[in-house]
């Protein structure tokens, strides 16, 4: 196991589009362990994508279960993930391990239907919403060479309206 170095912007490699995983072998499983260790031992985060550590394959890890009171599916290893349906739009604040000392407001789909492969190449699918859906969309962006900086909205764009009066 090894903790991998996280690429930080403006490293051009973060703009690279990643390729699909085709072989689900021991080398992939070893990498997944390293990726998990990198996420667990590094600064607190709810996800990480393979290109953030310089491996340009369509692999993301998402785990929002450390956040209190947020519906979640636990720790997800998503390989070749695809969003097959999405609904709604909501603005929330994001930061990124690859963009230190900056956070900004980003609009994302509120709920998504997701298909992916697990570590053994089996097809898995999820319906998710809110924070977990945001985390998956944030991580999947990395697979296409995008950062949350590519989706920033201005400070004045409103968050989801909730009335407490």
């Amino acid at each position: 196991m090894a903790q991998l170095e996280i690429l930080t912007f403006p490293d051009d490699r973060l703009k690279q589009v990643s390729t699909e995983v085709e072989i689900f072998d021991d080398s992939l499983h070893a990498f997944l362990k390293d990726l998990e260790e990198t996420m667990d031992e590094g600064p607190p985060s709810v996800g990480i994508a393979a290109p953030q550590v310089g491996r340009f394959e369509r692999i993301v890890l998402v785990d929002v279960s450390i956040k209190p009171k947020i519906p979640n599916h636990g720790r997800l290893i998503l390989i070749n993930p695809k969003i097959v349906a999405e609904q709604g739009q909501v603005v929330g604040r994001e930061g990124c391990l690859s963009v230190p000392d900056f956070t900004g407001n980003v609009a994302r789909a509120e709920s998504i239907e997701l298909e992916a492969k697990d570590a053994h190449g089996n097809t898995i699918s999820f319906s998710m919403e809110g924070y977990e859906a945001r985390a998956v969309q944030h991580e999947m962006d990395h697979l296409d060479g995008l950062l949350f900086l590519d989706h920033l909205v201005s400070r004045r764009d409103l968050f989801r309206r909730k009335k407490y009066k």
């Binding site: 607190p44 994508a49 956040k67 930061g95 391990l97 945001r134 985390a135 968050f159 407490y164």
Partner: peptide, 10 residues
């Protein structure tokens, strides 16, 4: 209106 900001770091 009070809106908690739950910053997502990913």
């Amino acid at each position: 209106r009070v809106i908690p900001i739950n910053t997502l770091i990913g």
